[in-house]
Design a protein around this nucleic acid. Structure first.
Length: 446
DNA sequence: TGATTGTTCAG
DNA sequence: TGAACAATC
């Protein structure tokens, strides 16, 4: 008798190199399922852009599954209950899924294990979210690596699992009416942004970027205007691409700066896995009184701070659901060090708008900038004018997103006088960087 | 993947 | 004079 099992997709929305799907398929009949977790769907931090990317990814997963004789079932509601009900409906004995590491994922998995056990259904957790899963390499001293460099060394030397092909032929199971209705009700918004969700687009983007831009990554990754970073983060977040595959394809490159970035993702996952509360609380507690000022927060969110590099980046975020890594650090430093606002406010806005909004990378990178994270350096302050001069010399990036400044000549765009601002209709700076940092340091010292 | 300041030293 | 470096915030 062949076994019947459910494969629950979470953020491993792919058929290639998907351990949960592949191993379930080896054991018998498989019913692929995705549940819109009511708690996630209704949470304020899931913005329309990321939801659209998710829907596109699910649609593509469905067609990927159809090519191998299956289809994707959809349910919406309480995540655990829906999975259990689906198991009963399909008379399945086993649930396969990839293990994830956020607070919410850990809790709901525990809940699922308990409920499944009560009715004699087995839950099998699989790898697939990371290159090297959290817990596979640990420092001698404690639970997780707190420093990136030693982690990176171990990560490179670790034994990586083998890549898995897509299952050849899953037994046929037509998507039911209910699934179609659910998908219909969530109908994706018209998507004009550059990154369309799904495994197919993800793979195409990966291949073309690796073919053309990977070799120049070290030279161009900080060049804001040329915009040559991989932009694979949303595909990695939803698992349209296997992080292991991305790492394998880039690790033997003469220059390791890209695969290092892939490793940062695993690094923060292992931090979050050991400290799930770090998504909302300081990783290193620190007694600093954050200010709050609604008008300044709004100005920051809308890209009207009067600092061109900050405004360009914040407008890019609203428009594309994406921001260059370099400017993520610049705007985060501006919110925490210049406006003295809580990193959680910044992280929340990022989560609402980023296609790649990922609890581990987002919250812990914010903590890194705020100086509450693993790499503790309260004196790290980005000077928006310096960053702009160094990484957007010609002002091309700024002009792309801040049309008021398109008429600027030469270097003046980095450091505008009050009269020119007035003339161009561009805001005066909402704070003076020098004074704001002086105050930050005073507050920090006391 | 910080910025600034001060020092040294080649030219 | 300015690059390179370390100390300091």
């Amino acid at each position: 008798m062949t076994e019947r099992s459910i494969v629950v997709f979470t953020r491993d929305l792919r058929v290639i190199d998907n351990p949960a799907l592949c191993l379930a398929a080896e054991q018998g009949e498989v019913f692929p399922l995705f549940v819109f977790d009511q708690k996630i769907v209704t949470a304020s931090d899931l913005g329309n852009k990321r939801l659209t990317f998710l829907l596109e990814s699910l649609e593509d997963l469905h067609s990927g599954l159809q090519k191998i004789g299956s289809s994707l079932f959809l349910r919406v509601g309480n995540w655990t209950e829906e999975i259990i009900n689906f198991c009963k409906e399909k008379e399945a004995q086993t649930i396969h899924l990839a293990i994830d590491h956020s607070n919410h994922s850990q809790k709901r998995l525990e809940d699922l294990r308990k409920k499944a056990q009560q009715i004699g259904i087995q839950v099998k957790g699989h790898q697939g979210i990371a290159v090297v899963e959290p817990g596979m390499i640990t420092p001698a001293s404690g639970e997780e690596y707190k420093m990136f460099s030693p982690y990176y060394q171990k990560w490179k030397e670790a034994t990586w699992r083998d890549l898995l092909p897509a299952p050849k032929n899953l037994s046929s199971s037509e998507r039911d009416q209910r699934s179609s209705e659910i998908f219909h009700n969530f109908r994706p918004e018209e998507n004009h942004i550059r990154m369309k969700g799904g495994e197919r687009t993800g793979r195409a983007n990966m291949k073309s970027w690796m073919g053309e831009d990977l070799k120049n990554y070290a030279f161009l990754r900080n060049d804001l205007a040329s915009d040559r970073t991989s932009r694979l983060s949303p595909y990695l977040h939803f698992g349209c691409l296997s992080p292991l595959e991305v790492a394998v394809l880039s690790r033997d490159h003469t220059d390791d700066s890209f695969v290092r970035q892939v490793c940062w993702r695993d690094f923060y996952l292992q931090v979050l896995s050991s400290h799930p509360e770090a998504s909302v609380a300081d990783y290193r507690t620190r007694d600093f009184k954050w200010r709050s000022d609604v008008n300044q927060y709004e100005a920051w969110k809308e890209g009207k701070t009067g600092y061109p590099i900050v405004d360009a980046a914040m407008r890019q975020l609203l428009h594309e659901g994406f921001m260059h890594n370099r400017t993520r650090m610049v705007v985060a430093s501006f919110l925490t060090k210049d406006l003295h606002m809580d990193w959680r406010l910044g992280a929340k806005h990022f989560m609402e708008h980023l296609l790649d909004g990922d609890v581990a990378s987002n919250q812990l990178n914010w903590q890194w900038v705020a100086g509450t994270g693993t790499d503790y350096n309260p004196h790290r302050v980005f000077n928006p004018t310096r960053q702009s001069e160094r990484f957007d010399k010609t002002g091309e990036y700024i002009k792309r997103w801040v049309p008021e400044l398109r008429q600027c000549f030469g270097k003046e765009i980095h450091d505008l006088g009050p009269l020119l601002r007035e003339e161009l209709g561009y805001p005066q700076p909402i704070v003076d960087h020098g004074e704001a940092i002086k105050k930050y340091k005073q507050d920090y010292a006391s």
